[in-house]
Design a protein around this nucleic acid. Sequence first.
DNA 1: TGAACTAAAACGAGCGCTCGTTCTATAAAA
DNA 2: TTTTATAGAACGAGCGCTCGTTTTAGTTCA
Lengths: 232, 232
Amino acid sequence: MQGDLKFASFKQDMNLTMEALCRELFLQNRESVRIIKEEIAVKNLVKILNAALTLCNRKGFASMSLRDLSKESGLSMGALYTYFASKDDLLRLLQSQGRTVVLRAIETQIGGAEHPRIKLRKAIQAHLYVSEIMQPWFYLSYMETKNFPREEHKKAIEAELFTEKLLIDIIRAGQEKGVFKPINSELLGAVIKAMLQDWYLKRWKYSQRRVSVDKYSAFVLDFIESYLVSEP
Amino acid sequence: MQGDLKFASFKQDMNLTMEALCRELFLQNRESVRIIKEEIAVKNLVKILNAALTLCNRKGFASMSLRDLSKESGLSMGALYTYFASKDDLLRLLQSQGRTVVLRAIETQIGGAEHPRIKLRKAIQAHLYVSEIMQPWFYLSYMETKNFPREEHKKAIEAELFTEKLLIDIIRAGQEKGVFKPINSELLGAVIKAMLQDWYLKRWKYSQRRVSVDKYSAFVLDFIESYLVSEP
DNA sequence: TGAACTAAAACGAGCGCTCGTTCTATAAAA
DNA sequence: TTTTATAGAACGAGCGCTCGTTTTAGTTCA
């Protein structure tokens, strides 16, 4: 399919290593991370965030104690508190970074495309691929949203609606051009979002069944396009 | 559509009042609920479960304290502990009751149907309708599954897979009869499940957009059947 | 070279508090 | 009398978080 890309090449193109993400997170949160030397900060943020993601995915954020985190990351309690101001602050750091990365990834991917059908394919693929790489991040954001303090909770809902709106707008643009059928775009956008989220919420199921992200992506795209696209 | 039913009549047919559910829960858990007289037990179980569902949906199970629950339900700490053995036990009571009800509802609905297409429609409608009535229950089960003790966690996963298997089997039966196209039934079953779950996980979104369960149901069925059904 | 100094970073015992849970003593209802 | 409900004290465990102390790494000076 024209404009399609495989997961392998996506992964290579975007630089989504833990180290790169933590460096960005450090530079944008100098007031939370009270560490001066960049290399030390990045090295330990990688440890902390990996440990936090592991523990949160195992038992949930609320049930993860900072003593658990201390043990898992190899840093002392005191050291942890030089990298974030509070447990809630740690959650905020994690979550805001996830939001930034997914939006950037999707917008980078659909930026070049003009044709609505290709644009829709790229948006869906980008979402699946970025969530494939950062699955624990997405899982945590989804599951803990409702426990956030007011402001962060609002941002999480907005991000959810923004991605959905993005899909709906592509669908509507295609309908105006006549390449898509006149289907309820709001509902279709919502269920597409649900299918995208299922990929990172039930990864255990899909990997057990040996369904790769490329296979899932192809299936979902076929399903949607059969319903939506006017001429074959 | 032949065999279809509206939400309103479904609600009337199945007896899913809180009182009926609590009575059943009481009769099946005499060892947990250390109350002798049925009427007293049912009356207070309704109070307790309503309060627990309200609080859990607001702040999550882990963050709900039993002092909160005592205040919200109007029962004392001591009284609460005559209705369940521990906080985990309360979660188990809630969750097992939800499982029982959804399975019974779906199996009752698809029991009469023979034609795969009608069977699939009924299964999907029954799932949506029962989750419409018991939304807080479903939301809680979904969100708290991973915090369950081993045995309960296993049961929750099994229930998830059972409902999915049920869909997949209907799809395969229809494919063997030639009324459905030869589509990957495992993946289709998975994404149908995702769409069903989205209904109770994002109810705030749908009710804000004035999408009724009948409207959502009609959309989802149309989406799936366009892809799956051989002749129109 | 190596001793002395220093700022950054890491340490971990301990504080104050809330949690789930138990228990007591008493009252009300059936 | 028996069953159920009450308010609330008490308990130990575990929580997030702090802070005085120690370690580390790098620089200065003899």
